[in-house]
């Protein structure tokens, strides 16, 4: 079963690519047609009044996300065993995740080695941007999928082979809803919001803000030009998650980036990775 569209083809629409490669590492043409003929009627031709004399109850009591959570736990152990600090970066599209990463990689080049897994529905664009900084990067294209899951990260790590005692940034698909549910095995979720969005976003998408450990408020250089109340935004986010930490920054000017780097260094020390 394909979980991008629910058709009966296998779920192989996800591709894993390095910049500079023409074809996906695992290609799949997803050639099955999506234009089914709708010949079936929706009149419930099955009857609910048939004799269920044979029917019986089977107790299950199994978490629906159990398979993902098991794989995430496997990933978490894999990272811990190698001293790799894995972070799951989540946000709406356009908040500046990739820009924050580009600047972070450049500024920390000498002190904190980073590699990146890029999640997008389509294209190598973000991976190309990261590759230009010199950091190892692998692009996961989810096709029509709206989030990365633990199995994709496991496979991406097989391809990317992140070096022990480094930081692995996982840039999730731009989406504040679905990625909240899928544990990847990361040490922390970092949610990014930019001041060109609404300051009430934490109230509109509470599940993600409840799941995050750190909130980066990006593009603060634009504050004079937009109607965004940073204090109100932080207060709203704290309402769903009192433990949430905040860093206000601007990836384009570099303002506030030091506090984000300090948070990274602290986390890295806590995860057993090398400190500088």
């Amino acid at each position: 079963m394909c979980d991008t569209c629910g058709c009966s083809q296998p779920a192989e629409a996800v591709t894993f690519r390095r910049p500079g490669t023409e074809t996906p590492a695992h290609s799949h043409d997803h050639a099955h047609p999506h234009d089914h003929d709708h010949g079936h009627d929706h009149q419930h031709e099955h009857h609910h009044d048939h004799d269920h004399s044979q029917s019986r109850e089977v107790k299950v009591a199994q978490d629906i996300l159990q398979q993902n959570d098991l794989l995430a736990a496997h990933n978490r152990g894999w990272f811990a065993g190698r001293g790799i600090l894995a972070l799951n970066l989540v946000s709406s599209p356009g908040s500046g995740k990739t820009s924050v990463l580009e600047r972070t990689i450049s500024d920390l080049r000498e002190t904190v080695p980073l590699s990146v897994i890029e999640g997008d529905q389509q294209t190598l664009r973000d991976a190309d941007r990261i590759a230009a900084t010199g950091a190892p990067v692998l692009q996961v294209n989810t096709g029509k999928g709206c989030h990365l899951d633990a199995a994709m990260i496991q496979r991406a790590c097989d391809e990317l082979k992140p070096v022990p005692d480094t930081v692995l940034m996982i840039e999730n698909v731009g989406n504040l809803v679905c990625p909240a549910l899928f544990d990847l095995g990361e040490a922390a979720k970092v949610v990014i919001i930019s001041v060109t969005e609404g300051d009430d976003k934490p109230l509109k998408y509470p599940t993600m803000f409840a799941a995050a450990d750190l909130c980066l408020i990006n593009k603060i250089d634009l504050l004079p030009h937009v109607n965004f109340d940073v204090d109100a935004c932080e207060a709203a986010a704290r309402q769903v998650n009192p433990k949430l930490e905040f860093v206000r920054l601007a990836a384009t000017t570099g303002e506030g980036m030091d506090r984000w780097y300090q948070w990274l260094r602290d986390r890295r020390a806590a995860s057993g990775g090398e400190t500088d």
Partner: peptide
Amino acid sequence: MHEMSLVISILDIAEAQAREANA
């Protein structure tokens, strides 16, 4: 739409348990 992913997991779990119960 993560609901489709969840439904796939639900059906995987249900089918595995049903087969185990010889249903």
